[in-house]
């Protein structure tokens, strides 16, 4: 496995389309992009993106008014299993754009800003495969994994052997965030953005997330 920083340098040198040089420049200070994809399946090599949603974060502000949401028309047919997850049928995606039409706009939307996501590695791998094909680079952006932030704040000081629950649900529950309908790329990106601003603030303030402990017994009758 080649490290991301090495790939980044390589792609910076070999980028085919010079008009995408801006991807290697630093984004505006304190700006981030939360991103989420819905795909036809979980195989990074074979499956395809159906929807991609991204929302910019400026400081503590989630810029939903400037969101990026695209429905793509996959090259191959939709698998039945995937339809069950995101409720997008073949007919629904027929109206989507061809993927290669999406990427220029997506890359301009993201620019050099760090990407924020949940299980981001998967989304980035899906995006990289496409972007590499169309523009000849992989996403050079710094990556911020919200489950990692969450882990630090909750389990960072846990004794070894503590059971860790890093599911999306667990994070939402601990942060008390309102659950929007999941498996909608925009909602997922938005919830991820909310997690990010809340977790980042907690980290800055030195707050922690409490873990459930065994509780001693005490008779309170008096």
């Amino acid at each position: 496995m080649i490290p991301r920083w090495a790939k980044r340098l390589f792609h910076q040198a070999t980028i085919g389309d010079q008009s995408y040089r801006f991807m290697f420049e630093k984004g505006p200070p304190n700006e981030f992009v939360a991103v989420d994809c819905e795909t036809t399946g979980l195989d990074v090599k074979k499956d395809e993106i159906i929807t991609i949603a991204a929302v910019r974060i400026r400081g503590n502000r989630i810029l939903t008014s400037e969101r990026f949401v695209k429905l793509a028309r996959p090259e191959s047919d939709m698998a039945a299993d995937a339809i069950k997850v995101h409720h997008l049928r073949q007919v629904d995606v027929e109206s989507g754009q061809r993927l290669y039409n999406i990427w220029p706009e997506f890359l301009h939307f993201v620019g050099g800003r760090p990407l924020v996501g949940y299980f981001l590695e998967f989304d980035v791998a899906m995006i990289d495969r496409n972007v590499l094909r169309f523009i000849g680079i992989e996403m050079p952006n710094p990556l911020i994994e919200v489950s990692k932030l969450y882990y630090e704040l909750k389990y960072g000081d846990a004794p070894p052997g503590t059971h860790c629950d890093l599911t999306f649900r667990a994070i939402m529950k601990d942060l008390g965030l309102p659950a929007l309908a999941q498996h909608d790329a925009f909602n997922d990106a938005l919830m991820t953005a909310m997690m990010f601003v809340a977790l980042r603030d907690m980290k800055q303030r030195g707050a922690r997330i409490e873990r459930q402990r065994d509780r001693p017994r005490f008779d309170m009758a008096h």
């Binding site: 503590n60 502000r61 008014s65």
Partner: peptide, 11 residues
């Protein structure tokens, strides 16, 4: 209205 809506986090 929704296109004019953002979400802001306050500590």
């Amino acid at each position: 209205l929704q296109d004019a809506t953002d979400i802001e986090y306050y500590a």
